[in-house]
Design a protein around this nucleic acid. Sequence first.
DNA 1: ACGCCCGCCTGTAAGC
DNA 2: TGCTTACAGGCGGGCG
Length: 278
Amino acid sequence: MPELPEVETIRHDLDREVTGRRIKSVEVTGTRSVRRGTKKGFMTRLEGAKITGVKRRGKYLVLVLDTKEWLVIHLRMSGQLLLAAPKDPKPKHTHVVISFHQQGGELRFVDPRTFGELFVVHPDQLAEEAPELLQLGFDPIDDPISWIKFGHLLLARRMPLKTFLTDQGVVAGIGNIYADEILHAAGLRYDRASNSLSPQEMRRLYRSMVEVLSEAIKARGSSLADDQYVDLHGRTGTYQAHHQVYARDGQPCARCRATVERAKWQGRSTFYCPQCQV
DNA sequence: ACGCCCGCCTGTAAGC
DNA sequence: TGCTTACAGGCGGGCG
């Protein structure tokens, strides 16, 4: 579900709402969401700890604890984090509940498809226990690089542009929606080879990537028809109103009026304008 | 060695 | 109406 702009929106709100709070208790009801290490270890490492900050690495959320450990959360396709009062009815598929001291309410992890995951790790143990966090590429919002350096990555990789953008080991945080939107903004086809771009096209792709992601963060992310993505308070994002191609097949391209097409590519839907993306 | 597809799950919508 | 099928924001493993 969520990509960089949605995860960043949650990170920002979490930082405001839970940083400084101390964890009173942790309840793990589901069987799949906490699957690294034991549930008991997960609970005891969290209980009594204070959250000192909330960071993001690509699509991963990192809640830093005063024990120096990290609570890492990945929402995958259908995970949600919701802040609620203990008396509020728990939504179906609530798998983990983290309660805070002082009228802090509780943080709920809700995930119908159960692909999402939470685990606690000490940052010194990442190589052994969570290598995927070390293998992430650069973060286009948190950790921007020069477009020249970006160009070197494009030349070195020799892969279709959409594969390049969604490879978390190259660029961290982009998924199916934003890859399509970025490529449309840049006027480039999803299947163009990354090493076939002119310097102007490389710069345009870099600028489009940063611009689309920044604007999407300002709009608090994209919520699709199913409203699967909501923020900590259950509110939808508004960037879907700015989508130019994603889920807009059959409609005219805002730039050239050609009809937006949907293709099945590498097992997933890709939306693009066959005329102005080259 | 590398690119592609499946499976992991549940829910929803479309098609028949 | 109701059954079946396809598909959905991600990603790792395993296959060819």
